[in-house]
């Protein structure tokens, strides 16, 4: 099988699993309808050319899942920090924009990094460029944390083969 066909079979399997989870019906006619919709979706994905390494990053998936617990802890910590600033009557914020270096080689890696930055309250991705990301931070402290590049290194580690 060519890599493209393997990917289509994988996509079809994932979509079928999703369909079964969402429907919860085991009637034959409904299952056939589900199969039809999966087939149409896979066909459209192939026609649009989006079933490539970017649309379905299979190789990086296990490492990305291993990265999630660290990300969850960072998100909770910054949530508490920003929440404390909001309820403080004097509103202690000092917004800054910084440009952080992004040394991820693949587009998937850069997207994961940019999305992680935005997911963490206190920092928002403004622009994603070839090897840097422009970030709006709520506080200078948040910008400095980002400049230590710990998150960036962890995302880069996810895409290594």
């Amino acid at each position: 099988m060519t890599p493209s066909n393997t990917r289509s079979v994988l996509l079809g399997t994932l979509l079928s699993a999703l369909w079964l989870m969402l429907s919860g019906h085991w009637d034959v006619r409904l299952l056939l309808l589900g199969l039809l919709s999966v087939a149409v979706t896979v066909w459209m994905a192939r026609r649009m050319g989006i079933d490539d390494a970017e649309g379905l990053p299979v190789q990086q998936l296990p490492r990305l899942i291993a990265y999630l617990p660290w990300l969850a802890r960072a998100v909770v910590a910054s949530n508490i920090d920003v929440a404390r600033r909001i309820v403080t009557p004097s509103l202690p914020i000092e917004p800054v924009t910084v440009r952080v270096h992004a040394d991820q080689k693949t587009a998937v890696g850069r997207v994961v990094y940019a999305n992680s930055i935005t997911l963490t309250p206190g920092t928002i991705t403004l622009e994603v460029e070839e090897n840097s990301i422009e970030v709006h931070a709520l506080t200078g402290e948040g910008a400095r944390d980002l400049c230590t590049n710990e998150m960036g290194r962890r995302v880069t580690a996810c895409e290594a083969h």
């Binding site: 909770v76 920003v82 909001i86 509103l91 914020i93 997911l119 309250p121 928002i124 709520l138």
Partner: peptide
């Protein structure tokens, strides 16, 4: 509360991020 209190749209996005995550 942050969405109402913050001074501009970018800082309001940070506040909206709290609702969207935790």
């Amino acid at each position: 509360i942050g969405i109402v209190r913050m001074p501009d749209v970018f800082t309001r996005l940070h506040a909206a991020g709290i609702t969207d995550t935790l």
